[in-house]
């Protein structure tokens, strides 16, 4: 069980790393970690370092530090839990960045994406759109169906019919089924 002193030390060490530590380091995971590991690490950090844990310390510099640190934890998770943002971040990291810039993080969603409220359904939608553009009909179909299993969104339905109406669509789907 963490003592107040442990908590303080933990916050201060993370605060000291704000300008240099990567999102992975902030969450205490490896760049190769999968979604589940990242999510668990985030929940673990949230448990210990959420601003609510510092209310009884009273308003002061520790509370402010904890708040700043927690915002970064939250940002790290929002980037690393989104496959596209994670790819963008990994590229930025190769160029020496420790953080994904605001413009890249606030990637514009299309109107169709915006209608999808389930985060995972939106990720499947986006992946399906990308695959469809590259002509990967079968892969796009699977993502669309996975998305639809989570949320019956108009955008996903539209994709589904686009694949079916594609002259190659039924063929591609059939071939895969036989194989």
């Amino acid at each position: 069980m963490a003592t107040p002193d442990d908590l303080r030390a933990h916050v201060l060490s993370l605060q000291e790393g704000l300008e240099r530590m990567t999102y992975y380091e902030f969450l205490g995971v490896r760049p190769s970690s999968d979604y589940v590991a990242i999510r668990d690490a985030y929940y673990d950090r949230a448990q210990r370092l959420h601003p609510d844990r510092f209310v009884s310390f009273g308003a002061g510099s520790l509370q402010r530090s904890a708040y700043t640190v927690y915002k970064r934890i939250s940002e790290a998770f929002s980037v690393l839990s989104d496959p596209q943002l994670r790819v963008a971040y990994d590229e930025a990291r190769l160029r020496g960045a420790h953080r994904l810039d605001d413009v890249a993080r606030a990637r514009r969603r299309s109107p169709q994406e915006r209608q999808i409220s389930n985060n995972f359904a939106r990720i499947y939608y986006r992946a399906a759109v990308g695959k469809l553009e590259r002509g990967l009909l079968r892969a796009a179909w699977i993502d669309t169906q996975l998305g639809l299993s989570l949320e019956d969104a108009p955008g996903l339905r539209e994709l589904e019919s686009r694949i079916l109406e594609d002259p190659e669509g039924p063929v591609a789907l059939q071939e895969e089924t036989i194989a």
Binding site: Y67, E75, S78, A106, R109, S117
Partner: peptide, 16 residues
Amino acid sequence: DFIIERNSAIPLEQTR
């Protein structure tokens, strides 16, 4: 121009 997306965990900040 959407700055903060729905269902993002709080607290959070975005700069423009």
